[in-house]
Amino acid sequence: MIYDVLIDGMTYRLELSRADGKWACRLNDKEIAIDAVMTRRDVLSILIDGHAYEIKREKSAMDLHLWVGPVRHEVVLRDPRSLVSRRAAAGPDHGPRKLIAPMPGKIVRVLVSEGDEVEAGQGLLVVEAMKMQNEIKSPKKGVVRKLVAATGANVNAGDVLAVVE
């Protein structure tokens, strides 16, 4: 298999195959001798050059993170032959940005109105969960195009609260 792996803003070309329990691995055209075993769901033991590593996987409906030691890497894995992947690679960096609820909770305050100009990092709404009130901040400088959330509403993780463009 050939993958393009996007990690922390860098893209790696990974060529990986397995035959008779042995792995063949090339990363950015560099041959690496690896041994890999999945010790349980979401946990991988990898041996490289005598060094042992444990990698843990966190997966949600939205994204994939891999932990190497105490460091959490955001990972996007693409099959470069797939059309969907090539389109996704164009990235969502421009245009409107959605404000996603990071956790389930209740909207206790809405601090802006549709049409307001906001700065990156400015608080737009306050969500309460676990007895704590938390400000949800704007992901970018722009104009509040849409405000879906209303005071008093319950929201789930992943719900779109507002759109800033």
Binding site: M1, Y3, V5, I7, D8, M10, Y12, L14, L16, R18, W23, C25, L27, I32, I34, A36, M38, R41, L44, I46, I48, Y53, I55, R57, K59, D63, L64, L66, V68, H73, V75, V76, L77, R78, D79, S82, V84, S85, A88, A89
Partner: peptide, 23 residues
């Protein structure tokens, strides 16, 4: 990051049902 890149591919091959192509 390199380790994570390799691991991402290994996971995809060993556990294909759970999202081989995360894109």
């Amino acid at each position: 990051a390199e380790l994570a890149a390799i691991a991402a591919g290994v996971f995809a091959i060993l556990d294909p049902a759970s999202g081989a192509d995360t894109s």
